[in-house]
Design a protein around this nucleic acid. Structure first.
Lengths: 194, 194
DNA sequence: CGTCTATTTGAATGTACTCAAAAGCGGTGG
DNA sequence: CCACCGCTTTTGAGTACATTCAAATAGACG
């Protein structure tokens, strides 16, 4: 399995020495998951952060009425987890589930904190990475408010190139916050517009 | 002006020595703004992060159609800025404007980075703080999708206690992503329900 | 008291949803 | 190889939530 991609990901914002790399990788668990397996389950405490080497996952919430709301897809070179649960070590509000066979690099809460002590610049990496994620989340908040469903779909396609080929339509509808029926109508509109 | 509240805010996650406190405060600019003044203007580069000692601000985006979309209110003991612009030092997509006379403690991009060097545990503080903000942003994404406008209003009241007394209704409507007219109808519904 | 802005109310419209049913598609077994 | 099953997508009719536009009312301030 490719152990280099996660190091490349870190090297976006920090540079590790060979010793630090080895230390980091010694804490990382490389693991394969089958389609359908859960990385986090709503109600459980999220124990790991996961870097996606290969595959695709969804993060979703089941509300009181039993409706599934996908809040995020995670693909190659993304980090995923329920940060809320991971940080506070309290029960998760989200499920994270594999949509395909996935290769993940996982770091436990305990090991991550240990690494922050041993390699302080990792704290810098995490700060930058999380700030980017925060900015992206706010961007999405603005889009969702300003734009009707058709435009949100076009934004989705920009954010996740080719993902609408990989994921069933009803899951994209859930991500967009609309029903599968309405999403189908939007798609046929877009096709006939051209 | 109260210089202690910002130190109390830092002490949520880190403990500074007396020297570090003094160093930190030497970099902070305490400043008063009048109602209507802008902290950040869409298109400008956001130069400071601001801690709110007193007052209330709104962060909003003007879209292509000229509509104002409020994405956040900031009140006492909150941090505010356009993080996207601040971090990348690129033009801002948001305006941040005072809704009341405000007392702010401001830290420039340059000084903040210098402080990260001089007091590394500030990096830890920022990571934790931004993670909390990220979690809150995702929570809001879920609410906005799952809930109709009436419920979103109730969530708003939980998140911002007493703010609907301080802010005009049409601005709350903008925050909720609905028109002022519809918001007025929701409010009269809620009153008659009791 | 008058002016300006914010809020309320109402009618017509549009966007998105629910429910129901049909059509498409992929895999499995005979 | 085809028929059937289960699941996804499409289509349509009726409905609900939210918007637009217009006008009336209420509040704030000089």
């Amino acid at each position: 399995m490719n152990t280099q991609s996660i190091i490349n990901n870190l090297s976006r914002y920090i540079t590790l020495t060979a010793e630090e790399e080895a230390l980091y990788l010694s804490k990382v668990r490389f693991r394969k998951f089958q389609k359908g397996q859960f990385i986090v389950q709503q109600g459980d405490i999220c124990t790991h952060e996961s870097y996606v080497i290969a595959g695709c996952l969804k993060t979703y919430h089941i509300d009181e009425n039993g409706n599934e709301r996908i809040v995020m897809f995670s693909v190659e070179d993304w980090w995923t987890s329920d940060l809320g649960s991971f940080l506070t070590q309290k029960p998760s509000a989200f499920n994270v589930q594999c949509l395909e066979t996935c290769e993940l690099a996982q770091l436990s809460y305990h090991d991550q904190n240990e690494l922050y002590q041993l390699i302080p610049k990792l704290e810098h990496f995490s700060r930058i990475a999380i700030q980017k994620a925060y900015i992206a989340a706010y961007e999405r908040l603005v889009y969702n408010f300003s734009l009707p469903a058709k435009e949100r779909y076009l934004e989705f396609k920009k954010r996740y190139p080719n993902l609408d080929q990989r994921v069933p339509q009803y899951q994209i509808a859930s991500y967009l916050g609309i029903t599968p029926e309405f999403f189908s109508k939007i798609r046929s509109q877009l096709i006939h517009e051209q």
